[in-house]
Simulated scan of single mutants.
Amino acid sequence: MGNCFSCFKVPPPPDPSTNSPMEKDKEGNSSTTQNLCAELQPSQEVHCPPLTAVETQVNGNSKGTGVMVVGSDNCGSLHRDKTPRTFYSRIPPLGRSTSSGGDGKGREPSEAKLNAMFEQYRDCNEDAMLADGIESLCADLSVSPDEFKVLVLAWRLSAEQMCRFSRAEFVSGCRAMRVDSVKGIQARLPELVVEVTRDPELFKDLYRFTFRFGLDAESGQRILPSDMAICLWRLVFSVREPPILSRWLFFLETHPQVRGIPRDTWNMFLNFSEAVGDDLSSYDDTEAWPSLFDDFVEFENDQMNQNISKDKDEIIKQDCN
């Protein structure tokens, strides 16, 4: 295409002692066009058709509406333009982030924002969110404090104990979730719920976390009280309840002598619920199950035998009548 930069050559400035042909008469479009093309002759690749209208000429660049001009972006090419084109208009603006910062997922979470958000809910006497602050946070998140989403949030924050989020737990947990605002947490929670319910390994991690989360860490508690264990079993299984759960909880509620649930019993119940199904027919008492599971199966068998006896008595009474 020859020397590309030739399309940027401009004609020499007009002699001030003489009037420009364009100043004399704008009607002489044809002659003006021929003069202009003659001055651009070194390019040899620029073909200038007759111009329909030329208003002004500044530094060799023509301006006007509906004018055929030599484009500065495609050397020697002709195009129709209503406004002058410049190289600088093609450069994208600098210093702007292309990510949507509404939920913080497209950028690194702001430490300042995380600390400012924590301060909104921090207890006035302790550098931590306590029951009231967590309740306010849940209200802003449009969730209930006893909802499964809040348990998932505590799990992702690696909270050491219930009703308490320390600053370090909150800031590091939100940074790991890549959020730095209430709206960001609110948008992330449903995604976390889907992830934990679809991935058995993630759910197992959440399930084991729940036992530790329910303990009173300040008193060094190692066994979960039965009433607390019942509440937490209902909560952690609220999105994927095993068939045996309701009968298991009924057994615990009707046997007050069972005062606490050790960690091993809690952890093994997940395997137990998957192994026995919904009718306990596959339960093997020779396996190394906790003794409490043996008691539960015996209780269930007794209940079943009692129901069978009642059904027989009802049948006999109906026959006698």
Rank of each mutant, 00 (worst) to 15 (best):
R156W: 07
M68G: 06
L249G: 02
F8Y: 14
N125Y: 07
N125C: 06
D146W: 03
F296R: 05
E287K: 14
N59S: 12
E195D: 14
K312I: 15
S144P: 01
S246V: 01
L202P: 03
R208D: 14
Q318F: 13
S31L: 15
S17V: 12
R240A: 13
R122N: 08
T286S: 15
N74H: 03
S72M: 08
D278H: 12
P190G: 10
S17P: 03
S110F: 04
M129Y: 06
Q303L: 15
S97W: 04
Y88W: 02
A131R: 06
M177E: 11
D180E: 06
P109E: 06
G2I: 00
N267I: 08
Y88V: 05
L130D: 00
A128Y: 02
K312S: 13
P256E: 03
D319P: 03
K149Y: 07
I261V: 15
P84K: 14
E55S: 09
L280H: 01
R247H: 09
R212C: 08
K149M: 15
A131C: 03
N19R: 11
R164Y: 02
M162K: 11
E195C: 03
L153E: 01
L141S: 13
G66M: 05
V70I: 13
H79Q: 13
P92N: 03
S166C: 09
G71A: 09
H47W: 10
D123I: 07
E108M: 06
P12C: 04
F272R: 00
V67Q: 06
S77H: 12
L141E: 09
F170A: 05
D284Y: 09
P16W: 07
I91M: 15
N307Q: 15
N61P: 02
P11S: 10
E126D: 14
Q221G: 00
S158K: 11
N19S: 08
K317F: 02
A112I: 00
F250H: 11
D279V: 09
K312N: 11
S100K: 13
C138E: 03
E23K: 05
G277I: 06
F237E: 00
Q306F: 12
F211A: 05
E241P: 05
V258K: 04
L141H: 02
K317R: 13
R178K: 15
V196Q: 10
Q34W: 11
G106E: 14
M117G: 00
A131K: 07
L224M: 15
P109C: 09
A275W: 09
C231R: 15
V239H: 13
P49M: 10
D285Y: 10
M162T: 07
M304H: 11
Q318M: 10
R212G: 15
N115W: 00
D180V: 04
M268P: 00
Q303A: 07
L235S: 02
N271Y: 01
F148E: 10
N19G: 05
E126M: 05
R234F: 04
P190I: 10
D216G: 05
A112K: 07
L137Q: 04
F209K: 05
P92V: 01
A128P: 12
R240E: 07
F293Y: 03
G106W: 06
Q41F: 12
E314P: 00
